[in-house]
Design a protein around this nucleic acid. Structure first.
Length: 420
RNA sequence: GUGGGUGUAGCUCAACAGGUCAGAGCACCGGGUUGUGGCCCCGGAGGCUGAGGGUUCGAGUCCCUUCACUCACCCCA
């Protein structure tokens, strides 16, 4: 029985890594322009952190977390999302005392024990952005940043949906109104929604069953029940978005999976992800930091699914491996040893060089050099060694010239413009 | 957790209704040039056809079990 990777937890092979690095570098560049600073948070946290932040009765906490006791019998969890950790770190290090430290991003793996499918894996990667500033302007900025980033990557057909989830004050009366409505139509809901009605009524807005959708068309909507503060806050966010030329759809039925969202929520949707439709999503969370024992600062953030992003990028060129520049081919033990030394010295001097470690035919070595994309090859055999030279072959044209071994390193560095 | 699809060489896939069916292309290795790449030609290596059991004279092909992958439901990035 061969040991394989765990279901839904995949290797990223060298040929794909270029794309990952490219996406990450674009993210770092743009986020930096927007004043966000990278923060690196642990992959493992105390289970309590997620239970308290995400919400005890969410699917994530109830059945999707990788949770286990460590050797001291403390319950630990592989993070299913990043926001809780960023907030925890912010609170733990008292970063609110440094007013210039309010905007963060982080990139890394998350874990959820779900059945894998297209665009959904048990270990998946997110790019997260969080800003702890209480102003509708920051909501608009964060949304704008998400769109700018996706645009920079040339992701096609992105549709931005926004909604407001209100605050504790307006959500409570609304829940009651919704529950009353649902109780009235309960028998006409699908099986799943019958269950949702009691566990998470808001989710019924997400149901794909046509009959449920019809019923929900007449259901009360949170947007109509916003309190004055929330209403004007939402208006302000929309105003700022418009001022930035952002095109959006107000989707009063959009529901997000984590309990901590308040007021502004948003998703970047695409039709190209199979059963999935969100590449990125996020929103504002008012009470989270206080729940986690910190100051009462609100936050706004989003998460982008890396794998989903890469699916949308598939087929497009993205970050190639640097082709090597020089290949050193040698014939005979003596020459091979000299070649080995030459290769290491050139590498030390910052040149991308490769060689063949099995003593193969010159033909085989040149073939390898070609495969690796070398523009030049040094050929060293007994004949050359005896004359105290090496051959420098230009692959493109197939010409070669003799180069004295004496001072060959400097000569090559000059050739590749690497002399200091 | 539930349902559908698929499992044949490293990769992508063939093999009519069970009977030379274990193959092709790419990749890999070697030769064509006693020491010279890409194109071309020739050759080679590589698979107990996911695993186990059953039906049959005979199974990659049919049946059962199991595992894996995949898509979808659920849920979410």
């Amino acid at each position: 029985m061969k040991i394989t990777a765990i279901k839904g937890i995949n290797d990223i092979l060298p040929d794909e890594v270029g794309k990952w690095q490219w996406v990450e570098s674009v993210a770092r560049r743009i986020f930096a322009n927007f004043g966000f600073r990278e923060i690196r948070i642990p992959i493992l946290e105390k289970t309590e952190l997620f239970a308290r932040s995400i919400g005890e009765s969410t699917d994530i906490v109830e059945k999707e977390m990788y949770t286990f006791p460590d050797r001291n019998r403390q319950l630990l969890t592989l993070r299913p999302e990043a926001t809780a950790s960023v907030v925890r770190a912010f609170v733990q290090h008292q970063l609110h005392l440094q007013p210039a430290m309010r905007k963060f991003y982080t990139i890394g793996p998350m874990f959820r024990h779900e059945r894998p499918q297209k665009g959904r894996y048990r270990q998946f990667h997110q790019i997260n952005v969080e800003a702890f500033i209480d102003d509708p302007m920051i909501d608009a900025e964060v949304i704008y940043l998400l769109l700018v980033f996706l645009q920079e990557l040339n992701i096609p057909d992105i549709d931005l949906h926004i909604n407001s989830m209100g605050c504790v004050d307006c959500r409570q009366p609304f829940r009651i109104a919704l529950s009353e409505y649902l109780a009235g139509v309960s028998e006409r809901l699908c099986q799943d929604c019958q269950r949702r009605r009691l566990t998470n009524p808001l989710r019924i807005f997400d149901c794909k069953v046509e009959s449920c959708r019809q019923l929900m068309r007449d259901a009360p909507v949170l947007l109509d029940h916003l309190c004055d503060d929330c209403r004007s806050n939402f208006a302000s966010v929309k105003g700022h978005l418009k001022s930035l030329g952002v095109i959006f759809t107000i989707n009063p039925h959009m529901v997000r999976g984590l309990d901590y969202y308040t007021r502004t929520t948003f998703e970047a949707l695409t039709p190209h992800l199979g059963a999935q439709n969100a590449v990125g999503g996020g929103g504002r969370y008012d009470g989270l930091m206080k729940i986690l024992g910190g100051p009462d600062l609100s936050g706004t953030g989003f998460a982008i699914g890396m794998e989903r992003l890469l699916l949308l990028l598939a087929g497009k060129a993205g970050g190639q491996q640097h082709p090597i520049r020089l290949f050193v081919a040698s014939l005979g033990a003596e020459a091979q040893s000299r070649g080995f030394q030459l290769v290491q010295e050139l590498r030390f001097r910052n040149l991308l060089v490769e060689m063949d470690y099995e003593s193969r035919s010159l033909k085989a070595q040149l073939r390898r050099a070609d495969k690796l994309g070398a523009t030049h090859v040094i050929i060293m055999g007994e004949n050359e060694l005896a004359k105290g030279v090496a051959l420098l072959r230009e692959m493109e044209v197939g010409s070669q010239e003799e180069v004295p071994l004496d001072g060959i390193v400097e000569k090559l560095l000059q050739k590749f413009d690497l002399v200091m």
